[in-house]
Amino acid sequence: MARWFLRGLRRGVVTTRYPHRPDPEAARVPTPPAFDPARLTGALADQLVAVCPSGALERRGDTLVLDVGACTACQRCLPVAGAAGRPSGVFECAATDRDRLRVAIPIRGQHR
């Protein structure tokens, strides 16, 4: 059972206080990935681009471009990325410009 429902029974209020207060349930929302530039190698970037089913990742030279607008937060890139990737935890992504949803991640990892 959802925790917010039990909390609501205890307090008598089920309604979230967002945006007045952060919603604790927001941590359980699937979010786009975040990659660590220091651990991101060119080979890994190519693997990530290949595994992304929605084409949200694109390699442009020394940067990996993540299109948050196309990302479906399926998180299939996370097992591939290993320590280089994690869920970003950012669900407040609304933008007023399409280009603001694109993030260029520099590839700084060394080839071993």
């Binding site: 927001a26 929302v29 786009p32 929605s54 948050v68 607008g69 196309a70 990302c71 479906t72 937060a73 399926c74 669900f91 992504c93 609304a94 933008a95 007023t96 410009d97 399409r98 949803l101």
Partner: peptide, 9 residues
């Protein structure tokens, strides 16, 4: 305004 997500929460 663009709200990304599939679906957005």
């Amino acid at each position: 305004v663009l709200i990304p997500g599939c679906p957005p929460s």
